[in-house]
């Protein structure tokens, strides 16, 4: 475990009764990378993320996030990470402003900090002028960018994104990934799960899991080379059916 790794997992395992959701998973994610975490539905991606964010206790194994043992220093870890789920976790009956203000309060930002972050997010997500619009009335693309803003309101060093683009049109997905790259440029590590292989090919590194076990890891190019030039789709299908 070095400071160069944003995430370091050793033999991480989670069992629910007789079912093993994550099975002796070991993984290193270097700081500043866009890391794609791939696998079919039910392969254990979300369970892994929940253990890394301290929402689930591992049955065995260790997880270090930003150099800290998640099991022991969960509060510290949580202050430094962000999390955005497929559900976006916005309050649809509240306005853009109220959603941001709420997450600012939950992250305990002081007024100056909040004001600065609010400006930044409104520009980043192109939401200026829509501050008092109800979130329910925003299109999915805007909601997705607002969710990203809310998840990063406290300027996290590491951001977990659990299928952040499912159900979003290709144009909005492209725009969203542009935002992710900008975040990565500022030094934020991104840990992304996705089912879109075009998105996966934009990642620095990829990890495939199947039935909770790591089945392949490497850069997109390394993986294509290992599989004799197959596309990521073909690799995904092959690795997920074995």
């Amino acid at each position: 475990m070095t400071e160069a790794n944003a995430i370091s997992i050793q033999n991480l395992t989670k069992r629910f009764g007789h079912f093993t959701a994550v099975d002796h998973l070991s993984l290193e994610v270097p700081v500043g990378q866009v890391f794609g975490f791939l696998g079919a539905n039910g392969s254990g991606k979300t369970t892994t993320i929940r253990m890394l964010t301290g929402s689930l206790t591992p049955s065995s194994g260790k997880a270090y996030v930003l150099g800290a043992n998640v099991a022991k220093r969960v509060a510290e870890v949580r202050r430094r990470i962000g999390y955005m789920s497929q559900k976006f976790s916005l309050f649809e009956d509240m306005t853009v402003e109220e959603n941001l203000r709420f997450y600012g309060g939950v992250y305990n930002l002081d007024p100056d900090e909040f004001a600065a972050r609010r400006e930044y997010i409104l520009d980043m997500a192109d939401l200026r002028g829509r501050e008092s619009e109800l979130t329910a009335n925003l299109s999915v693309g805007w909601r997705q960018r607002l969710a990203l803003g809310a998840a990063t309101i406290h300027s996290p060093e590491l951001l977990f994104l659990d299928e952040p683009t499912s159900g979003v049109d290709p144009l909005a997905r492209r725009r969203f990934w542009d935002l992710l790259y900008e975040l990565a440029k500022t030094g934020v590590t991104l840990f992304v799960t996705t089912h879109y292989m075009d998105e996966a090919s934009h990642c620095n590194r990829l990890a495939f899991i199947n039935s909770g076990r790591l089945v392949a890891e490497g850069t997109p190019n390394e993986l294509r080379a290992q599989h004799n030039g197959a596309t990521l789709e073909e690799i995904f299908t092959k690795l997920s059916t074995n």
């Binding site: 929402s55 992250y107 998840a151």
Partner: peptide
Amino acid sequence: DQITVSAT
């Protein structure tokens, strides 16, 4: 989940 992850 989102609120829990915020160290609340």
